[in-house]
């Protein structure tokens, strides 16, 4: 399916559940509200025309200026050869979203990583242990933009080096 066909197909299948974002990289992108995510993912996964059977990438994004934190889902369909980006935005205080690992098993570790580095809670995750950081980590969520740790050294501005 071409990106234009995919965009119109998703708009007709999921009216008022998704909100179109500019396709910066040529891949259709949609914004989903956290409470609609499970339904949207179920339709994307099971609809025979959309048939998104693969989740190559899932990651967090942080916007301290607008007090928003989010998760980006990159979807791909081996059967139909098309891409899609989904974006869920939440307030930075206590962000919580449903897990998608019931549709795509790959989301299991991606979500563990995102939960550990961004502090986003994934509801009903099958295995919510930490994944990457040292075992006794207690310094918060290092991938947030305003994070400062004990041993953290920020890159000096150009011309400001010691």
């Amino acid at each position: 399916m071409t990106p234009e066909e995919l965009t119109s197909k998703i708009k007709t299948t999921l009216p008022d559940k998704v909100e179109e974002l500019p396709a910066v990289t040529g891949i259709p992108a949609f914004k989903v509200r956290p409470e609609h995510l499970e339904e949207v993912c179920r339709i994307l996964f099971s609809d025979p025309d959309l048939h998104f059977d693969n989740l190559p990438c899932l990651g967090g994004i942080d916007y301290p200026e607008t007090n928003e934190i989010g998760v980006v889902y990159c979807l791909f369909s081996f059967a139909r050869r098309h891409h899609l980006n989904l974006r869920v935005m939440m307030p930075r205080e206590n962000p919580e979203v449903i897990t998608v690992s019931e549709f795509w098993l790959a989301a299991d570790w991606f979500e563990r990583e995102t939960a550990e580095l961004f502090g986003i809670k994934f509801k009903d995750h099958p295995d919510p242990r930490p994944l990457l950081l040292i075992e006794e980590w207690d310094e918060g969520y290092p991938m947030r933009k305003d994070w400062e740790g004990k041993d953290f050294i920020r890159m000096p501005e150009v011309g400001q080096e010691k």
Binding site: L132, L133, W147, G149, F152, I153, R154, M155, P156
Partner: peptide
């Protein structure tokens, strides 16, 4: 990884 890094031993 000296700057802006939370996980690498210096």
């Amino acid at each position: 990884f000296y700057y802006d890094c939370y996980s690498v031993l210096r």
